[in-house]
């Protein structure tokens, strides 16, 4: 026998059932990300910081047509100077605390003899152990240098590659 009692209980039951079904659907169908969601955001910021630091180093002093500090560091293989300047740009913060960024830099050039792309280490503030979560930043440099495989000193394009991580 049908009567009109308990309508509210019926609605409640149907609603609860819907919520449970939806929850199960979303939990089972959702994508799980097991890395912390912030990792990529801090990577992005680190990459931008490193790019900016390299760009500053590759800007001639006072905007003149002289060589940039980075250019002369490549040409004279001045790894110590690179370390000082780069860490200074990267680790400076407002306030009394400094950032603790570490880097490992290398220079990539083309060997004219065989056309191979080769690299040599320029400087590193710490050795890479393989456990770092590093980002790579790069900067093109025009270097008036006799790279390996070349007999004459002339303007060449080289790529400074820096691995940057928070130590």
């Amino acid at each position: 026998m049908v009567d009109c009692d308990g309508q509210l209980y019926t609605i409640e039951g149907v609603s609860a059932g819907l919520i449970m079904l939806l929850t199960a659907y979303i939990v089972l169908g959702g994508t799980s990300i097991y890395t912390p969601g912030d990792t990529h955001i801090s990577d992005m910021q680190l990459e931008q910081l490193g790019s900016d630091a390299l760009r500053m180093m590759n800007t001639p002093v006072n905007g003149t047509m002289t060589e940039s500090p980075l250019q002369s560091m490549i040409e004279t293989n001045n790894g110590a100077g690179f370390t000082t300047t780069f860490l200074n740009y990267c680790n400076n913060m407002t306030g009394s605390h400094a950032e603790n960024l570490q880097f490992s830099a290398s220079v990539t050039y083309r060997n004219i003899n065989d056309g191979q792309i080769e690299s040599y280490p320029l400087a590193a503030s710490r050795n890479l152990t393989g456990g770092e979560h590093a980002v790579k930043v790069t900067e093109w440099v025009i270097a008036d240098k006799k790279f390996t495989g070349s007999n004459v000193q002339k303007n060449r394009a080289a790529l400074v590659e820096v691995l940057l991580w928070r130590g």
Binding site: Y109, I117, I142
Partner: peptide, 9 residues
């Protein structure tokens, strides 16, 4: 050589 450097790297 500069152009080749740039393009191949």
């Amino acid at each position: 050589d500069f152009r080749t450097d740039l393009q191949s790297i």
